[in-house]
Design a protein around this nucleic acid. Structure first.
Length: 109
DNA sequence: GGATTGACGTCTG
DNA sequence: GCAGACGCCAATC
């Protein structure tokens, strides 16, 4: 179990399988942060030296809401397409199909 | 120490 | 079904 919120979010993001995506709400619910804002906040802080696979984290609508904070607006889309996903209008196609629920695959410890 | 902000979610109208 | 408001908790100013 991590201590800082950022480490928890980072850990969950790191555990996301290739070609899978998750939502802020699921991470918040899994980590019991209480609100999805904490997830976005933690990712935005990005104080870690290592890059975070935040491109796999989207909002509940499957939209790349955080693309604005990436080096380029298309960076997130490029990464997701590189993993076999399809992005249309900054939204994940068949989002539910690629959705990955941390609480169903990760151990809560 | 109080007010504001932040990659969102859910509820109500 | 869509739009607006509130809540959530930590960090920063």
């Amino acid at each position: 179990m991590k201590s800082d919120y950022f480490e928890q979010v980072f850990w969950v993001c790191s555990q996301i399988p290739f070609g899978k995506v998750t939502t802020y709400g699921l991470i918040a619910d899994y980590l019991a942060l209480g609100s999805a804002r904490m997830v976005g906040w933690a990712l935005f802080q990005g104080k870690s030296s290592d890059p975070i696979p935040a491109h796999r984290v989207v909002n509940s609508k499957g939209e790349l809401s955080g693309r604005n904070h990436f080096p380029s607006p298309t960076y997130m889309q490029e990464m997701l397409e590189n993993e076999g996903l399809h992005i249309f209008n900054h939204k994940i196609v068949h989002f539910e199909r690629h959705l990955w629920n941390p609480s169903l695959h990760l151990q809560n410890f």
